[in-house]
Design a protein around this nucleic acid. Sequence first.
RNA 1: CGGGGCGUAGUGUAACGGCUAGCACGAGUCCUUUGGGAGGAUUUAUUCCGGGUUCGAAUCCCGGCGCCCCGACCA
Length: 415
Amino acid sequence: MLQSQYPYFARKEAPKDEESYNAQILIRAGFIEKIMAGVYAFLPLGLRVLRNIERIVREEMDAAGAHEVLLPVLSPKENWQKTGRWESLDVLFKLISREKKEYALGPTHEEIIVPVGQKAIFSYRDLPFGLYQIQTKFRDEPRAKSGLLRGREFLMKDLYSFHTSVEDLEVYYKNMLAVYKKIFSRLGLEALQVEASGGTFSKYSHEFQVLTPNGEDTIIHCSACGFAQNREINTQQEGDACPTCGTPVHISAGSEVGNIFQLKTKYSTPFGLSYTDAQGVTQEVQMGCYGIGISRLMGILAEVYHDDKGLLWPKSVAPFHAHLLALLGQDEEQNNAIRSQSMRVYEFLKSKGIEIIFDDRANVSAGQKFAESDLVGIPVRLVVSQKTGDKVEIKRRGDEKSVLVDLSDIMPYVS
RNA sequence: CGGGGCGUAGUGUAACGGCUAGCACGAGUCCUUUGGGAGGAUUUAUUCCGGGUUCGAAUCCCGGCGCCCCGACCA
């Protein structure tokens, strides 16, 4: 039996027990499915978006010289006891084995990476270096909410850097600020670099915030000089003078997409992570950590890129480059012509490396195919029907008008 | 964990304590249809779970579980 070219899970109505926009639209369009509060399955279309976000983050991490690792989700209690977080970290998921041994599911991986790093660090000559992973994280949030924006299980990139000195850490940290800006810009997002409280990690940190009406953070920011602080550390009101340049500040809701901290020796100390300096003296290793919420980014992209008809993915993360619709009718002779023409288009674009999804379903009305393609939000829509003859109709998602072109002229429209 | 709301086919919903739990969408089958979520016929439910009140419970009461929202919390 021929498998359908169209792995589709769309539905007309979103479940009523889901109020956040990103979860509603992503469920409706068939990208994700809720399994329980704060836990989602990624369906074929959603996984492709997730992989694209991942790929961009991975490319930039690799370009910055970081090395990818994969740390375990399951981790021993002792490591968390060493830092005191077995007790202090409320969101730590704990589990007990048949043998009554206790484990934690990783909410973040300092307790795991430090002992790993230790194996490679002896001398100052071994430093600096960075290790990162893209891994599922677990946090026992007291209240999961806002769809993909705050889950109990989510995908995250976490990078840890190791240094001989605070000065060296600062160089790396500053470079990471630039790397992060590049990542968000490739994802089609404008992210403000925001100063925030460092939480339990350090006195201060930098967050990257995308301004969106449904964001859970409040950001005080200045459009003139780029000053931006989280409400956590700033109590200014709309229109107050910017502390750095005096221009009236704005207050906006934002969603955190990345966060970077200077850990310094916070985790080196409990694990005895040290190196020998040029004078033969033992010194503590200085550390930084740098996170990006991969699955959360997918939710934020849905919040930012949509209209009343559905999603509009930026090309860099879109699940496919092109969405091909074959509009079939009752006339089988006509249908055969449409099938062979749409297959020509499909094979041609595939041969050119264009990622294409092909809606070849029979017995689905043209109107439904159009509505669903708008909902899914792939950047370019191609139509083959009785009207198009040996040409293809092309329309960009979001455009009003379409054009009819020969197959030989199609590439500029889809690449 | 405090406050609020809510659990009825796959989805969205209706039903005064009382007839065979109604409708729409989806899905299955058959026929017709095919450029903006098509039409007809037909099929599709232990009303979240467990107790209780009652001649009789989707409906009222108690307990549990689950979901959403506000707050607290948020590496």
